[in-house]
């Protein structure tokens, strides 16, 4: 009787193990990406005033990233907001950085990126100042998500920035 119970338990255990095998054995092999560091933007709110915003620094900084890691900083575009060079559903890149040895980064949005992305404008090297004034078409005012994405590992984090309509 005892012998039969032992066999019964063994068969039951093997059966359960075999049933679980397809689930456990086929779990994705990839290790989870390392935890992403932080991202902060300063200022967190500013007016969509052209050309005033071009001289206001928009800084991004973060901590807790992998040392030397490349970080793409992108603006998440709401559905319907179109932009040259950005396919529907894609984010609009606004900056990039490489983390230092301590995993910190500090970077800012380039002036040309502000023109091309925040103001959706065109550049022309034959024009004084290189901006085509009639092309300026700021993104709609609102609160936007900023994503910081590690280029190689894919780990990411986010923050927000608010663009307000310029005062009349």
């Amino acid at each position: 009787m005892h012998c039969f119970s032992y066999k019964k338990a063994l068969v039951a255990a093997i059966s359960i193990a075999l049933l679980l095998l397809p689930i456990v054995g086929c779990a994705p092999e990839e290790a989870a990406p390392p935890a992403a560091g932080s991202i902060h933007v300063t200022p967190s709110s500013l007016e969509l005033a052209f050309p005033l915003m071009l001289v206001i620094p928009i800084n991004f900084n973060g901590t807790g990233w992998q040392p030397g890691e490349a970080i793409a900083i992108e603006l998440v575009l709401p559905p319907g907001v179109q932009m040259k060079g950005v396919e529907p559903g894609e984010n609009a890149p606004v900056a990039f950085a490489y983390a230092d040895e301590e995993g910190n980064f500090n970077t800012s949005m380039e002036t040309t990126t502000k023109i091309l992305t925040i103001f959706r404008g065109d550049l022309d090297l034959t024009r004084p100042g290189n901006v085509v004034p009639e092309s300026i078409n700021p993104i709609p005012p609102g609160t936007y998500t900023i994503e910081a994405i590690a280029v190689l590992s894919g780990s990411s984090n986010e923050t927000t920035i608010t663009f307000t309509a310029p005062e009349e």
Binding site: A72, P93, V94, A95, F96, E110, T113, L123, V151
Partner: peptide, 9 residues
């Protein structure tokens, strides 16, 4: 668009 941020992304 000749923008380094877009190149990285």
């Amino acid at each position: 668009r000749y923008d380094a941020a877009r190149a990285v992304s």
